[in-house]
Design a protein around this nucleic acid. Sequence first.
DNA 1: GATGAATGAGAGTTCATTCAT
DNA 2: TATGAATGAACTCTCATTCAT
Lengths: 198, 198, 198, 198
Amino acid sequence: MAKNDKQEMIIDAALEVFRDKGYANARMADIARRAGVSYGLVYHYFGSKEVLFDLIVETWWSDLYSMMEREKASTAQFREKLVNIIQFFLDTYVKRPNLMSIFVSEVCRSSVYHTKEGLSKFLKFFSLCEEIMVEGQEKGFLNREISPHHLTYIFYGAIETFISVMVLGREPLTRKRQERATSAILQVFIDGAKAQAK
Amino acid sequence: MAKNDKQEMIIDAALEVFRDKGYANARMADIARRAGVSYGLVYHYFGSKEVLFDLIVETWWSDLYSMMEREKASTAQFREKLVNIIQFFLDTYVKRPNLMSIFVSEVCRSSVYHTKEGLSKFLKFFSLCEEIMVEGQEKGFLNREISPHHLTYIFYGAIETFISVMVLGREPLTRKRQERATSAILQVFIDGAKAQAK
Amino acid sequence: MAKNDKQEMIIDAALEVFRDKGYANARMADIARRAGVSYGLVYHYFGSKEVLFDLIVETWWSDLYSMMEREKASTAQFREKLVNIIQFFLDTYVKRPNLMSIFVSEVCRSSVYHTKEGLSKFLKFFSLCEEIMVEGQEKGFLNREISPHHLTYIFYGAIETFISVMVLGREPLTRKRQERATSAILQVFIDGAKAQAK
Amino acid sequence: MAKNDKQEMIIDAALEVFRDKGYANARMADIARRAGVSYGLVYHYFGSKEVLFDLIVETWWSDLYSMMEREKASTAQFREKLVNIIQFFLDTYVKRPNLMSIFVSEVCRSSVYHTKEGLSKFLKFFSLCEEIMVEGQEKGFLNREISPHHLTYIFYGAIETFISVMVLGREPLTRKRQERATSAILQVFIDGAKAQAK
DNA sequence: GATGAATGAGAGTTCATTCAT
DNA sequence: TATGAATGAACTCTCATTCAT
């Protein structure tokens, strides 16, 4: 108990510090101080700054892949799958805002992160997303003439930009805003933004 | 001549080093070495790492704003304006790949960058983009029921994700791919990704 | 123990290095080397060169003020108070020669020191000294027609010049010399230097 | 003409910069900028920072020695000689305040200065002063029982402290204050500060 | 005479990490 | 488990000085 307590306090502190300062400017001493432990203990449990960071980021990827695999295997309607993907991001923003911030600010575009094995993490996600898009095409929901790559970029780009704007502005996300965002993304992605014919 | 030569060599070297290592891990000595000058000279001309970085990023924002203002004021068809915005990003990727990389990796999501006045730079861009979306709604091209904020996020998110994937994968961009990407974004944004009725 | 040992070793080393090279030319690496520790440890304990220097100088001011307050409050004869003030400086020269050197060379006239809050430190000392001079006037020992400012400058100037000459010449101060200096200062200050009438 | 103009502008600028920042923190670029010339020209004329500083300080010593030699050789009354010495310092403070500031802040106590041949400069001055004190004793003005060393320290210490207080406080010196300071120093030095018998 | 581009030794400081206790 | 003293590589930045023009 006590052991897990301290470990979790360190991880929580790390989430805050990485969010506030970014990986490069986060100091182990900051993390230890915010967790209320000595920095020796951070090393005792986590070995290095990089390991601690990777551990945190790994929980994100792991959750993301789980969700994507689940949707891929699911028998739900295609539209429902898209909704679930959008909701996953928005829910994570609500429930684990620090993790979401770190993903946006330190992972999804960071050259530093990508010098490591980071690119492959993304490619795996994109690949899962593409499979779902292919399924949408095969089931007759999506236009077969548009490449699944492109579909993925547009769909994911919309979500990521939404999330990023909220992260950067530290905006709260109410249930109502969440629904409106979801439906806006879906509507444009499926039906386009053009003016409705009467 | 000689003077501008050296200054430009330093800026070019900085573009490469910032692209490769990111702001935090870029060393002034790297930049100087790659430019073939002493690091004293980098300070002679640019004062500090931060100033040098800001100078580079400023050229990006300045070009971006110019383009957006031009499109806003233009009398071209709405669809044409969207095409021009997309082309601006793709052209910059082709002509100034290092600048584009830095924007993607160090600016558009960097927590470090956003602790400074960075957020306002984005808001200004989004605001210009929204004005164009509003124009599209007023001219009857775009659905008035979707908020201009949302339209902006979706449109820009698609572009940014395209660019990011190319940057991270260091992919070349042929004219043909450029055209296909443009039309994919436009088609989905305007008409949606749903399967075409026969 | 060990902790205080190292801290004191660093302070002692700093006293030597600041004395030998002055603040501006003292290198933190010198201090660390002379203390037999890494320079990281100097920063661990003292944060910066300036903090370390200020800490040292503060001990001087603090001791000086304590002595002056003590004399002010004392019920001793006025002449005795002057003797005690002179003795304080001479004793400090004997017991803490490095501190005295630093005061003479780096504080009492240093433009660098005075750009900080240094001037006020002096004014406080002068002010305490003046109060004692006023007391001397009120008790009928000192000539009321001479301004307490002037009395202070002359009295203190004599002491400081004695000390400075010893510091600059690295002269030893025997008990006997100490007594002769004290009585010379007192005699001239009180009775003047003019030839004695027979 | 033009040549001397620039040289003098550089020296004047150096006086200001050395006064404001002290030798260690004065930058050649500051001096050049304040003189309105390139820093290459400062080197062209003066060779190095140290040479420039020494040149300035040398004018002080040279003027001081001239005055002291003049007084030594003079047939004036002893008291008059003391007055002239005091006046020399006060006049220099009025006419060349920057030079006086530099002497007080950077020369008279600076350990940096004294690592060079600085101490001998002082000893020469003290030696001249002592000769005058000896003359005072021999002519029956000064008490023969007080060592000429001590007489020198007390007399000079009074002057230096007066000057220092004005320098540090950047106080103006009116003719009236000048007279009062002179007579206070003289009175105490000759007759002492003790209360006058009625 | 005059400029300022160019150099690079050198200094302060940071901070991840180790390890004795 | 837990601490924080201790280390030193690494980095940014300064600035006196040189020298081609």
